[in-house]
Every structure is written in structure tokens, then in C-alpha cells.
């Protein structure tokens, strides 16, 4: 079988977000990068499916030249090859991102055959538009199930579990399909040293799409005002226990 997973390079924000001077991006000077947490589970699921069923797994991203790091990381975990749609670092809105991915997927499928499954994260960690995977599915006229915590192949169909209030809803859709997944789908593995070595020589295709004029146009970003909390110290070490218990009593939970 053939499985594709789409990922996005995002900064690891840590405790406090600092913006660039023009307030149009996060100042990432001192930050590391990763892919969105939901997508880590998409990569893991793609690797597991190919380990179990044989075939090929592919990772696709739209991002700056440095996004090569995230593609190599995915290949270190077992993805077979990568496709990099290179940007100049400017942000692309969800609609434009989806359009570029659709074109790349169509081109790859024409040369290398169709993907049985395409995985996306339910939403990106940074811009959180909740829509790129769904847009791709519509354009490819494939069923899309969103927000999944469990995926099981059943012959030529896939059984999907979506977490909802009071349990999980189950969907069964025919392949080929597009699935958007959430963290908790699986526990992603860590890369091994041999895996990282192998990743260096795995194939990576590149192209440079043109950025359309965004219809959801970023003007500026702002860090919201804090919730006004300023911690009151209840003490240090185990001697603080009585003060903690009094606080719990005052809060009416004890």
C-alpha cells in the first residue's frame, strides 16, 4: 500500500511567545523547530502501516528551506521518501497551502501511483485553521474523516474512531481516503541512530510553488493580555502543606 503524511514545520514555543518587531511572526531566533504534535502521530501511523502491510510511505511539506530538517526527521523514523514544496519563509494561508499540496499530490500520483491513505494533523499547532486536510480531500474527491484517535485497516476500508463527548464515534470509509488525526492516536517512536543515518540518503524531491495572494490575510499578531494571575506564595517545601490545605478548604473543594 501507499501512504502519504503531510506535515508542517513549527517552532517549539516554550513558556513565552515573543513576536518579531513588525508583529507579523514569532521571533524564532532562540527556538527549536518540530512538526505539529498531531502530525507526529500521523508520521508514526504511516510508518506502522507500511511496516505491517509493505509498500511505501511518503512525507510532504510546504515550508522554508529549513523544513528539510523535519522531512529528514520523518525519514529517520521510517518514512521512505520526501517531497518538499519550498517557500521563501513567508506564511501561506490554509487555502493556498491546500492548493499547493493538491497539485503536488496529483503530480506524484500520476508518476508513482495513487495513495491509499493520506494523513494530516487535525490542525496545525501554529495557525490552527482546521482545514488543510479537508480541502485536499474535497479536491481529490476522497472521503475524509477528521480528528481521529484510532485508525484500523479493514480490507479495502478503514475504520476510524473520533473522540467526542461521552466516548468515541466510529466511521468506516472506503480507500482511498484522507484522515486527519490527533495526538493520542499512538505513541510516536524516537528516531534511532541507524534510522538517522539511513534518512540522509533517502530521496527528497523539491519544487518551488508560487504563493498566491492570500484570501485570509495576516495583518498582525498579538500576545493576549495575561489572565492577571500573580502567584501568591504559600511557602516552601513540606512546611507549606497546612497553607495549601487551607487554600483548598477556602476554594470549597475539601
Amino acid at each position: 500500500m501507499k501512504v502519504l503524511v503531510c506535515v508542517k514545520r513549527v517552532p517549539i514555543t516554550g513558556g513565552r511567545i515573543v513576536l518579531t518587531d513588525d508583529a507579523r511572526a514569532i521571533n524564532t531566533q532562540h527556538l527549536g523547530f518540530t512538526i505539529s504534535p498531531h502530525e507526529e502521530c500521523g508520521v508514526e501511523e504511516a510508518v506502522r502501516l507500511i511496516e505491517a502491510n509493505k509498500g511505501e510511505s511518503v512525507v510532504l511539506t510546504l515550508g522554508p528551506p529549513e523544513a528539510v530538517e523535519q522531512l529528514r526527521d520523518a525519514m529517520a523514523l521510517g518514512i521512505d521518501r520526501a517531497i518538499h514544496l519550498k517557500t521563501d519563509g513567508q506564511e501561506w494561508d490554509a487555502e493556498s497551502t491546500a492548493a499547493a499540496l493538491i497539485e503536488a499530490i496529483r503530480a506524484d500520483e500520476t508518476s508513482n501511483g495513487p495513495f491509499d491513505l493520506i494523513f494530516f494533523g487535525n490542525e496545525s499547532a501554529d495557525s490552527a485553521g482546521f482545514q488543510v486536510g479537508i480541502r485536499v480531500a474535497y479536491a481529490l474527491a476522497r472521503p475524509c474523516v477528521a480528528g481521529l484517535k484510532k485508525v484500523t485497516l479493514e480490507g479495502s476500508s478503514v475504520r476510524c474512531e473520533q473522540e467526542v463527548e461521552g466516548g468515541r464515534d466510529v466511521y468506516v470509509v472506503p480507500l482511498p481516503a484522507v484522515l486527519t488525526v490527533k495526538e493520542g492516536l499512538n505513541l510516536p517512536r524516537y528516531p534511532s541512530v541507524p534510522g538517522k543515518m539511513r534518512a540522509r540518503s533517502k530521496p527528497m524531491a523539491e519544487s518551488t510553488p508560487t504563493r498566491p495572494v492570500p484570501r485570509l490575510e495576516l495583518v498582525k499578531l498579538a500576545v493576549p493580555a495575561g489572565q492577571g494571575r500573580r502567584a501568591e506564595s504559600l511557602g516552601a517545601g513540606s512546611a507549606a502543606a497546612p497553607a495549601v490545605v487551607e487554600m483548598l478548604q477556602k476554594a470549597g473543594v475539601l
Partner: peptide, 26 residues
């Protein structure tokens, strides 16, 4: 730690001592 600054209440120290002490106090 950011959470120590953005909480309503804080206790500084080793949680391995503090958490059992709270349980004992209750």
C-alpha cells in the same frame, strides 16, 4: 518557571516532599 509566575498560588520546593506532606495534612 512560567507556571510558578502565572499561577494563583505557588509552593517552591521538591514535589516529592510537598505532595505527600499535603496528603498527610489532609
Amino acid at each position: 518557571a512560567p507556571l510558578m509566575l502565572n499561577a494563583d498560588y505557588s509552593v517552591t520546593g521538591d514535589l516529592k516532599e510537598i505532595v505527600p506532606a499535603i496528603s498527610a495534612e489532609i
